[in-house]
Amino acid sequence: HNLTITQGKLFFHYNPKLCLSEIHKMEEVSGTKGRQERNDIALKTNGDQASCENELLKFSYIRTSFDKILLRWEPYWPPDFRDLLGFMLFYKEAPYQNVTEFDGQDACGSNSWTVVDIDPPLRSNDPKSQNHPGWLMRGLKPWTQYAIFVKTLVTFSDERRTYGAKSDIIYVQTDATNPSVPLDPISVSNSSSQIILKWKPPSDPNGNITHYLVFWERQAEDSELFELDYCLKGLKLPSRTWSPPFESEDSQKHNQSEYEDSAGECCSCPKTDSQILKELEESSFRKTFEDYLHNVVFVPRKTSSGTGAEDPRPSRKRRSLGDVGNVTVAVPTVAAFPNTSSTSVPTSPEEHRPFEKVVNKESLVISGLRHFTGYRIELQACNQDTPEERCSVAAYVSARTMPEAKADDIVGPVTHEIFENNVVHLMWQEPKEPNGLIVLYEVSYRRYGDEELHLCVSRKHFALERGCRLRGLSPGNYSVRIRATSLAGNGSWTEPTYFYVTDYLDVPSNIA
């Protein structure tokens, strides 16, 4: 807008934040220059609390790290170098490059900038070799853009010569660093050979998330399962459950009422301010606690030095998902009996873990797994792929695949051998790939016309006998059925096997 004052003059007093240069501009645009008398524009009460600059400061050096910015700028000295009290560095987070010096300023003089007072450097006698002032900004957020400017702080001049310097606002972004852990990993099994893994992005990506790394490792069953005799009275049979499938998407929606109208769909109840505040506090606490764990609990591995020492970490090797089922080394339970199943799973520490690289999504279907087997899954978020990966501390989750139908069934015939004193040795093959492992066998036998009897055969007993022995049988026709019990439950009964026990007292003698 054009402003013209045809008559009258300007009068400025007691404006401590208004620089004289701005008042002189007002004289020019209003056409009143030359009308004012000496005392109409006070030299001592206008701009006496402001830094009124008329020179431009330029930054000469900028260096960044993930949490620091090192700045240096060209030296500046007023005509009387004693008038320079120091520099004021202003900075704040700036997602967009549209910041002005006066953003967030209120009537009390406060604003949204963080201000650092910096002492002037030592003055050199040689004007050509003056030290460049600077400042190291610490405690910054990774991968965050900051708006920065600097200006001088000078003393009051009796001659009211307006001098000083100020830089333009520059924008500097800190470097990326390792992201925080992925949030809320959930693993479920939808079949006997697959596990579905879902997660949420890290709360602090500290860069642009480029991919996720998912490692999985087959877990050995508890050692007590191999040692305890679950045929003993009072000892509860062990059981394991597989990871249940995901709930429906509708039930997972946030901010939804727990109660549904019987007449149909209901609208979600909005969260109160107290609920939102509580969630923010919980989120802040979780982030602080995660940072504490990362800094205190997890110790970084030592990389190899120039002395030739090897990095103890196993090298990563990509495998196809079809090879995942046989990740671990199978060892027989008892070496003397080769027909026992290889369900003991000690994992070799030198073995390469299978892994998958996930790009542009937060889910993965891990296939080719062994049925009813526990897996430990390790999830890392990465925001750099080359020249070397920059990934987060791992988040861990466990899951067990679903049982395989008929995996616990005894394959092959049940054979028998009759000894003296009416002892019958029953023999059968253990299931080759049971659900988890076989903890015991149930032997059901009966003599024709009598009630059915049951015998429990422990895992250890089966390994020693290759089956079991029935003792003290009365003469007669017998039928026997056997079924295995694994961590997933009972298998199917075998087809009945028949044998006849004679009275050993009636056996004919070869003595003449």
Rank of each mutant, 00 (worst) to 15 (best):
T288M: 07
P496S: 12
E310R: 07
Q275W: 11
V296H: 09
G476T: 00
F355V: 11
L213F: 03
E389C: 07
L232C: 11
T288E: 14
Y498D: 05
A381R: 01
G264N: 15
S257G: 08
C231V: 03
E495P: 08
V329P: 12
S283T: 10
S492H: 08
E452S: 03
S283E: 14
E388Y: 15
Y445V: 06
R319L: 06
T210R: 02
Q256W: 10
F419Q: 13
K357M: 11
V324F: 05
S492Y: 01
S348N: 14
A463F: 12
V443Y: 01
V297W: 11
V365L: 14
H254S: 14
T340R: 08
E404S: 06
D273I: 13
S392K: 02
L213R: 06
R319S: 11
V424S: 01
E227T: 07
S304D: 15
F419S: 06
W242P: 13
D385N: 06
E247G: 07
D408E: 01
V501R: 02
P300K: 14
S509H: 01
P475A: 09
H352Q: 11
G306A: 05
R286Q: 05
L453I: 01
F298H: 14
N435K: 00
L470N: 01
E351P: 10
V507H: 01
D408H: 01
T241S: 05
L440D: 05
I418T: 12
Q380R: 08
T303C: 05
S305K: 14
P238E: 08
N339P: 09
S239P: 08
K278H: 01
C391Q: 03
L364S: 13
T494R: 02
S444T: 11
Y230W: 15
F372C: 12
V443K: 00
R469K: 03
K432H: 12
D250L: 14
D291P: 07
I377R: 00
R446H: 10
R390W: 05
N208R: 06
S342V: 13
D311P: 05
G306N: 07
R313V: 12
E388L: 09
H294N: 01
T210Y: 05
L505K: 09
C267F: 13
I276C: 03
S257T: 06
Y230P: 06
T210H: 13
T272H: 13
N295T: 08
N339M: 06
F419W: 12
L232Q: 13
I276L: 07
F499A: 03
T307N: 12
P475K: 08
D311Q: 07
V358W: 05
L225V: 09
G234E: 15
L437C: 11
S444N: 15
K406D: 07
P338N: 05
Y478V: 01
E417N: 03
P338F: 11
K302I: 08
Y441S: 01
G374E: 15
I377V: 08
A335L: 14
D385W: 07
P354Y: 15
P387M: 12
A395G: 13
E378S: 07
S305T: 10
E217T: 13
E351V: 08
T288F: 03
Y259T: 13
E420A: 07
N206G: 11
F289A: 06
R400T: 05
L213T: 14
E281H: 15
F355N: 13
L225Y: 03
I482L: 08
S243G: 11
L379E: 00
L225W: 13
C231M: 03
D291S: 06
L237M: 09
S392T: 01
S274L: 06
G207W: 02
K287S: 06
L487V: 05
F372A: 12
V331S: 12
W242K: 04
L364G: 03
L225C: 08
C468A: 06
S492W: 00
E310G: 09
L232S: 09
K361A: 08
A220C: 15
E310Y: 15
G467A: 04
L487C: 12
C231A: 03
E282D: 15
Q384F: 09
A407L: 09
E290M: 10
F289E: 07
L440S: 09
E249S: 09
T502F: 04
E221G: 15
T328C: 08
A394E: 08
Y478G: 00
G322V: 08
P332S: 14
R483F: 02
C231L: 02
V439M: 05
P238R: 06
Q256D: 10
K236A: 13
L379G: 00
P475R: 07
G449S: 13
D291E: 13
S509R: 07
Y212P: 00
C391R: 02
A330R: 01
K287D: 07
H454Q: 08
L232M: 08
R319W: 06
Y478S: 00
E279F: 03
G264S: 08
P205V: 02
A407I: 03
T210V: 13
D385Y: 07
D291N: 15
S305D: 06
A220L: 11
T241L: 04
S363P: 08
T303R: 11
G368S: 08
S344N: 06
G412S: 14
T386K: 04
E217F: 11
S458Y: 08
L473D: 01
V324A: 12
F215Q: 12
R376M: 02
F499G: 00
T328K: 12
K317A: 10
L455K: 04
F289D: 15
N435T: 00
V327P: 10
K302A: 04
G476N: 00
S223V: 10
L453S: 06
A394F: 09
T340H: 03
E430S: 15
S257R: 07
R447P: 12
C269L: 08
I209N: 05
R459S: 10
V443R: 01
K236E: 11
H211Y: 15
T333D: 09
E378T: 09
G325N: 12
I209R: 14
V501T: 05
Y292E: 05
K357T: 07
T373R: 04
K287R: 06
D503W: 10
G472Q: 03
T272P: 09
D385S: 02
P387G: 08
E265H: 11
G325H: 08
R466D: 08
L364P: 00
E217N: 15
S304N: 15
K460M: 09
S305M: 08
Y259H: 09
S444D: 07
L440A: 10
G412F: 10
R353H: 12
T502L: 12
A263C: 09
N383G: 05
S248C: 14
I410S: 07
V439N: 05
R481G: 01
S243A: 13
D506G: 11
